[in-house]
Simulated scan of single mutants.
Amino acid sequence: MYADKEQKEILQSKGCLLTDQYLHDYEDCFVNKWDELIDWEKRAKSEGSFFYDIFRQRNVQSIMDVAAGTGFHSVRFLEQGYRVVSVDGSANMLVQAFENARDKGYILSTVHTDWRRLSFDVQGEYDALICLGNSFTHLFDEHDRRRVLSEFYSKLKPDGVLIVDQRNYDRILDEGYSSKHKYYYCGENVSAEPVQVKDDLVQFEYTFPDASVFHLNMFPLRKAYMQKLLYETGFGSVTTYGDFQETFRGEEPDFYIHVADKGIPDQS
């Protein structure tokens, strides 16, 4: 997806990972195991009413799920009566998401596209846009991160809300890795551990009960940096939650969830 071929070749020569790396990471057999990693029932219980509370407060009716994966959130929101468009750069993920939705009696509206092309490939504006599952950290290039957030911003209605999450990379980089595996990857007997940690790369290894092993490469975004990017994109307010709680100690959460409102904050 890099328009500048010379830039791409320079980055590759320096050993830099590109945003498109995830397309190679999510191979067919890994996608087929993704739901085993998540455990839909346990994940739903851990989230509780977090997203619905945010949507109700803002009168959300339409949602774009830009990292739909195998459809967990898209299907949950369809079940609650929201209008949902499911977007992913991985065709393998969207195929599985469509099948998961169909198994539950829903027809998923899917768009296979790169986040950097949302304004070209997805019609309309939405009340809410979600980018969950640590997906934003697939973006390794600073320009791509800013471009994607601008695309997100442009696809929201004037009073729309963006919800984007990330692992607690501050703790991973500063303290080492630990996880309660309570909120996100709830599957039984499935291991998700970093096997490489650097300032510009964290590689996670996923091991399943059948001894199959897969890897995902992530850029370790720090919380303050992510908040800064959101404000610089133009979002009027940003509230960061830790594992779906507004009050938390900085080192404790496994995941941060940023809720960014597009509208200008109330000055009264």
Rank of each mutant, 00 (worst) to 15 (best):
I130R: 02
M1A: 12
M93A: 06
H181N: 15
S212H: 07
C131T: 13
F72K: 02
L173Q: 06
I10N: 13
K157P: 00
A67Q: 01
H143W: 09
T233R: 01
F136Y: 09
Q96V: 13
P194Y: 06
S46N: 02
G263N: 01
S191I: 00
L11R: 12
P158I: 09
R56K: 15
K228I: 04
T70Y: 07
F255D: 11
L132W: 08
R167Y: 03
Q203F: 01
K157N: 11
A91H: 02
T113F: 08
T233E: 06
S74M: 10
T233M: 02
Y52Q: 13
V31M: 08
N59C: 04
K104P: 02
E79T: 10
I264Y: 07
R83P: 00
N100V: 03
G133I: 11
Y241V: 06
L108M: 15
K33I: 00
L37P: 00
Y256K: 07
S268R: 15
H112A: 05
I163M: 04
G176H: 04
S154L: 10
T137S: 15
D144C: 07
I54H: 13
V195T: 15
N100G: 05
D28S: 12
D141Q: 14
P220L: 02
S119D: 13
A101V: 09
F214T: 00
Y126Q: 04
R102G: 03
L118S: 05
N168F: 00
G69V: 03
R146H: 13
G133H: 12
